[in-house]
């Protein structure tokens, strides 16, 4: 069985440190008004950006579980 160093630690680090960078990006584009949530199309993009983060996290989690138990 692979150790924690090859299963969930990289996952936690990737979506923790990467997630922090992502969060900073989301806050910056909001505060600078580069993304203007009063515009309908921008609201759609904001949701797409959030979806992308969880889409990749879910993809990696499924791949790790499949490797361990399938």
């Amino acid at each position: 069985m692979p150790s924690f160093f090859q299963t969930w630690l990289p996952f936690i680090y990737l979506y923790g440190v990467g997630g922090f960078a992502f969060l900073v990006g989301m806050i910056l584009i909001r505060r600078s008004n580069a993304i203007d949530l009063t515009i309908k199309r921008h609201r759609y993009w904001y949701r797409v950006l959030i979806f992308g983060y969880f889409y990749f996290a879910l993809m990696h989690a499924i791949l790790i579980i499949a490797a361990l138990y399938w």
Partner: peptide
Amino acid sequence: YINDWFFIPFFLFGWLP
């Protein structure tokens, strides 16, 4: 290939426009 999303907000709404 699956770790490029974190900087996409900066690109789509910062650098690209």
